[in-house]
Design a protein around this nucleic acid. Structure first.
Length: 409
RNA sequence: GUGGAAUUAGCUCAGUUGGUUAGAGCACUGGUUUGUGGUGCCGGGGGUCACGGGUUCGAGCCCCGUAUUCCACCCCA
């Protein structure tokens, strides 16, 4: 038997119902906030991710599905969604057009990681990107949108918040931090010694207890922000307070993609195991110019659909549509005609086998049909159809033409 | 990429120190005497015990390898 590749799953039946329910909920909300759908290719030039996500990140450094195609192009399957949307934004010259552009997207992302619960090699994200809005109110909008989606889906969460500073305060802070790290000497773990040169900010969320004990006294970026960043961060907090969105400041929250600046946030769930981040995002004002566009402020987030699917509280299933069956095979022709007519407006499922009434009712119940319509010997002789409303437990008999004449509509 | 655990029916799991035709619950299917479901009662189908080797008179059980899943690390959504 050939099976799917490691960490790559099929989505079917009830799983797909959840998937579809999530998508329609999230898309509806995104549209209400003024966002438009954008679809970008799954395959992009490798350079796009190297320049945006950053070569020092694990995503680009060791997790990309990268290969050379038949035209000798260095390409890879997208590991995240933002880079492609920014590429499209610049390629279609929307940066030069100016104004505000808001997009949402969803689809498969690929990372070559060791799979576990909540971590797949092919997984799905829903994300939004907003271009051209400098105001921190747009950062707040992002967080409110995620909160809105999660609340609608019945999902509990904790919101972690941090500010990563900008090109005014970050470089100075980085130097301060590096000299602090150097002062710790050999007491640090091997990972942190490596991070010191590649991406020093990352030492702050090191999982090692001994490192964390040392970092208690490390300089925190949050206390070293420049005036602009500080005032934006304060405004953001007051907006969230005004909208009753709870948050905790996490000075160690460092997003894994290099393009973030200023606002960074992460929604986590305690109910799905160690892969607990269900959504993350932040501001990335410099990324558009890194990708050869005109400098444009931008902010966005992405949600992990598979992780959310574990947590979604589905609405009660409702009975809908018709189940149709015959008690003797001679009536099947009429049954098919009724089904064809009904399907112009609603769901109609036909059982081809002649069965007892009891068996048909069981079948109708199993597929959660609202109505069970059956033609037996009596109905065939009278030219009628017997229909039972499975929810109201009421039954009635209609002439065949009651259904088939609807074709005139 | 590192370490650990698991894999028996469609699903969740039993299976004694290695010993005949591998079990249960749920699900599926049929019956329950005139044509009434979701919830009674009785029956039925369904397993190369993950895959490939090895040890043994004999392997679901012991050993080795492979695959997958899960847990921790790592990373992130």
């Amino acid at each position: 038997m050939i099976q799917s590749l490691r960490g790559m799953n099929d989505i079917l039946n009830q799983d797909y119902e959840r998937y579809e329910y999530f998508l329609s909920t999230a898309s509806t909300i995104a549209k209400r906030y003024g966002f438009h759908y954008i679809e970008t290719p799954l395959l992009e030039e490798t350079a796009l991710f190297k320049r945006s996500v950053g070569e020092s990140s694990d995503i680009v450094g060791k997790e990309m599905y990268q290969f050379t195609d038949k035209g000798e192009n260095d390409v890879c399957l997208r590991p995240e969604g933002t880079a492609g949307v920014v590429r499209a934004f610049v390629q279609h010259k929307l940066d030069k057009k100016g104004g505000i552009h808001r997009f949402y997207y969803h689809g498969a992302m690929f990372r070559y990681e060791r799979p576990q619960k909540g971590r797949l090699r092919q997984f799905h994200q829903f994300g939004v990107e907003s271009f051209g809005v400098d105001s921190v109110y747009e950062d707040a909008l992002m967080i409110m949108m995620v909160a809105d989606i999660l609340k609608t889906l019945g999902i509990g969460y904790r919101l972690k918040l941090n500010s990563l500073g900008d090109h005014h305060c970050m470089p100075a802070y980085r130097e301060k931090l590096v000299s602090f790290i150097e002062s710790c000497g050999d007491a640090l773990c091997d990972d942190c010694i490596r991070r010191k040169s590649t991406n020093p900010i990352r030492v702050l969320d090191c999982k090692s207890e001994s490192c964390q004990n040392l970092y208690v006294n490390a300089p925190k970026l949050i206390y070293n922000l420049c005036d602009g960043c500080q005032s934006d961060f304060d405004t953001l907090k007051s907006i969230l307070d005004a909208h009753n969105i709870g948050y905790e400041i996490d000075t160690n929250l460092v997003r894994g993609l290099d393009y973030y600046s200023k606002t960074a946030f992460e929604f986590v769930s305690d109910a799905i195991g160690s892969q607990s981040a269900i959504a993350g995002g932040g501001r990335y004002d410099r990324l558009i110019e890194f990708l050869d566009g005109k400098p444009t402020p931008a902010v966005g987030f992405a949600l992990g659909i598979e992780r959310l699917m574990e947590l979604i509280v589905m609405p009660e299933p409702i009975r809908e549509g018709y189940y149709l069956g015959a008690m003797d095979s001679e009536s099947l022709g009429d049954i098919l005609k009724i089904a064809e007519s009904l399907r112009k407006e609603q769901k109609a499922v036909v059982e081809y086998e002649a069965k007892t009434l009891k068996a048909h009712l069981k079948g109708a119940d199993r597929i959660n049909a609202r109505y069970c319509a059956v033609i037996g010997e009596n109905e065939r002789l009278n030219g009628t159809v017997w229909v039972k409303d499975l929810a109201k437990k009421e039954e009635s008999t209609f002439p065949l033409t009651h259904f088939t004449t609807k074709e005139d509509k």
